[in-house]
């Protein structure tokens, strides 16, 4: 039964492209769909997933406490206050990446599988060193997050190569922070450009627009995936549906900038 559990690592290579935000929101959207979701922060020493979920005040134990036997997994897992079927395993904040081995991380993932979760999302640290190896160790699928920006796409390409070396073939791609107006004016890489550079082994899983609501909702500790009005929230909900095997068309982001939509927004926003 535990073989049916989906274990997905969320990576990017480059920092600051939105891995943690993606993990939090895709996890939340999957939970809304009734999945039993565990989110694991593998960024040991730079804990952030707790902030994206607004759960930072609930942490007692972390993954290192579990690995070193000071706490049982059940004690360290934090249930989300909004979604009972969403739980987070925090990273340690006072240790560094060398505090765990890939084998130990794999063991934690195995234990999470035994807890009855249907989805385990692992938030991978930036970089290609030990932290990356630890985070990918227990995963069987990978999501690569990139921005339509040169350094980020280049690093995504590197990560795709490294994922393949770890046996994680055909990763899924999320292009984050796209600005449709800039693409139209030929000032920014389009989703198709990014796909062409990264090659066709990569499957497009989602396109998330650059959206202020991500900043405001993260500031409130409420994942944007819960916000009905937010376009980015819709994009994350679409990602969750695609992960669950549904064919969801990609949103026409351009339409949303039209006059009618702005007009509508006047009446729907708080």
């Amino acid at each position: 039964m535990s073989d049916d559990v989906r274990v997905v690592v969320v990576t990017s290579g480059k920092g600051g492209v939105g891995k943690t935000t993606t993990t939090a929101n895709v996890g939340m959207a999957l939970a809304v769909q009734g999945q039993k979701v565990a989110l694991m922060d593998a960024d040991i020493g730079l804990r952030n997933l707790d902030l994206a979920l607004g759960l930072e005040n609930r942490i007692v134990y972390d993954v290192i406490d579990v690995v070193e036997g000071r706490a049982r997994l059940k004690q360290a897992l934090i249930r989300d206050k909004r979604m009972q079927n969403l739980a987070m395993l925090p990273a340690a904040q006072t240790r560094d990446k060398s505090a765990v081995t890939a084998g130990q991380m794999k063991q934690v993932v195995e234990e999470l599988k035994e807890e009855g979760f249907t989805f385990i999302l692992i938030d991978c640290p930036a970089g290609i060193e030990q932290g990356f190896k630890n985070a990918t160790a227990g995963a069987t699928e990978a999501i690569v997050v990139t921005n339509p920006e040169m350094a980020s796409v280049r690093d995504a390409d590197r990560i795709i190569g490294l994922l393949e070396a770890e046996g994680l073939r055909d990763p899924m791609l999320i292009v984050n922070r796209i600005r449709v107006k800039m693409v139209k004016s030929q000032d920014m890489l389009s989703v198709e450009d990014v796909q062409e550079v990264l090659g066709n082994s990569v499957k497009l899983l989602g396109v998330v627009p650059d959206d202020n609501s991500i900043i405001t909702s993260t500031n409130r500790g409420e994942p944007v995936a819960l916000s009905k009005e937010s376009v980015a929230g819709q994009a994350y909900r679409d990602v969750a549906m695609r992960l669950l095997g549904q064919q969801v068309p990609f949103m026409d982001l351009d339409e949303r900038n039209g006059f009618l939509d702005r007009f509508k927004k006047l009446f729907t926003s708080k």
Binding site: M150, R154, D157, R158, M188, L189, S190, D193, V197
Partner: peptide
Amino acid sequence: PTPRACAKERLLGVVIEDR
């Protein structure tokens, strides 16, 4: 060349070298 075209061409170059 537009910034978009520049970015794409330069990226295709570095990515091939990286690989």
